[in-house]
């Protein structure tokens, strides 16, 4: 690996570790490193132990997992649809998962596995719908996005309708809609976490396939890649990642779009750098944002989705402005 890239990876890794440690320690009640250590060793016995095991640890894990999952899902979707505007929140994947989770709650299935599975199912259906529309209409790059945006607002509207008709389905809806980690629990996190880790592991072994796929359909086929099969597999994995993340973190928007782009600016589009750095960068970014959301207005807490857009928007525009002079063949 070239030296510049090593430094970038090291930095992203550090960002993850530091933000995770801070996220474990800081909050409405701060835990000193010694408290932390005792809590880790002692289990949930005293107050500090309770805070650590039942609030901080699930929350930090949730931040890391959802950040990694959404960023990677975004990168994969962008490569497969060969469209840089695509991301799980824009083409309706998150909305599909959101609708499925809302329906699941409205029908009274509240177990962690039921919610994670339905979120994955909803995300997958949304992806397949987008692909179907794209293939039927001839799949120009703009059409994919337009179709996705339409599906997105349609699915979101359905979710709203369900919540209006069955108010109980909207437990902590406010948090769900913009995304947030204040109500993360073990029961929801563990099944989703398993899905995310499995999907990430698989995606990371398929870097070459993703690169060859983004050479274009005909070229990829000519190189011996079964295009249809691989594309479906990648979309299923992307739906798994995004869906699982939505099931506990709600509709976090921005991560899936800006993290892949920011990472691409840093290390280029080769998947073997892009995907791992998306995992690290996404995890670190979301954890930092969540940390800030908790600390900025103590004892009040901002939903992290809001903060992410406030921080991420300008940062992204800055990145776009910095890219002066670079050639771009779109």
């Amino acid at each position: 690996m070239p030296k510049g890239k090593k430094v970038i990876f090291l930095g992203a890794g550090l960002l993850c570790i530091v933000s995770a440690l801070l996220s474990l320690g800081l909050g409405a009640a701060s835990l000193s490193p010694r408290d932390l250590w005792q809590a880790i060793c002692g289990g949930p016995k005293d107050t500090a132990g309770w805070i650590f095991w039942y609030a901080r640890l699930p929350r930090t894990a949730a931040c890391l997992l959802s950040g990694a999952a959404l960023a990677t899902s975004g990168a994969v979707i962008q490569a497969v649809l060969s469209n840089k505007l695509a991301s799980p929140s824009i083409i309706g994947v998150n909305a599909g998962a959101g609708l499925a989770v809302t329906l699941c709650c409205a029908l009274g299935f509240l177990s962690g596995w039921a919610i994670a599975a339905s979120a994955f199912g909803g995300a997958l259906l949304a992806v397949l719908l987008v692909v179907f529309v794209a293939e039927k209409t001839g799949a120009s790059r703009t059409t994919v996005i337009l179709g996705g945006v339409a599906i997105n607002s349609f699915l979101n509207a359905l979710s709203e309708a369900v919540v209006t008709l069955v108010p109980e389905a909207g437990m902590s809806r406010g948090d769900f809609r913009v995304g947030g980690f204040s109500s993360v629990s073990h029961t929801r996190l563990i099944p989703a976490g398993i899905l995310i880790v499995a999907a990430l592991a698989l995606v990371l072994t398929l870097c070459n396939e993703l690169d060859v796929l983004s050479l274009g359909e005909d070229t990829a086929q000519g190189l011996g890649l079964s295009v249809k099969k691989m594309r479906t597999l990648f979309l299923i994995l992307a739906a798994m990642l995004a869906g699982a993340s939505v099931s506990f973190a709600g509709l976090l928007g921005f991560v899936g779009l800006i993290v892949p782009h920011a990472v691409r600016k840093l290390v280029g589009s080769e998947s073997r750098y892009l995907l791992p750095l998306c995992v690290l960068g996404g995890a670190g970014f979301v954890t930092c944002c969540d940390l800030a959301a908790r600390l900025l207005f103590v004892p009040y807490e901002l939903p992290v989705g809001i903060l992410m857009s406030v921080l991420g928007g300008p940062f992204f525009i800055l990145l776009l402005l910095k890219r002066k002079g670079g050639k771009d063949h779109d």
Binding site: D211, V212, L215, T219, G222, G224, E270
Partner: peptide, 29 residues
């Protein structure tokens, strides 16, 4: 089949990868 016949398509996307990577992908089959 990809080890028997190489095919250069007419419409190609230009990916943002290095020349070496691109040529290496010829070894994908």
């Amino acid at each position: 089949l990809a080890r028997k016949v190489a095919y250069l398509a007419q419409n190609r996307q230009v990916p943002d990868i290095s020349v070496l990577r691109m040529v290496l992908h010829g070894r994908f089959p």
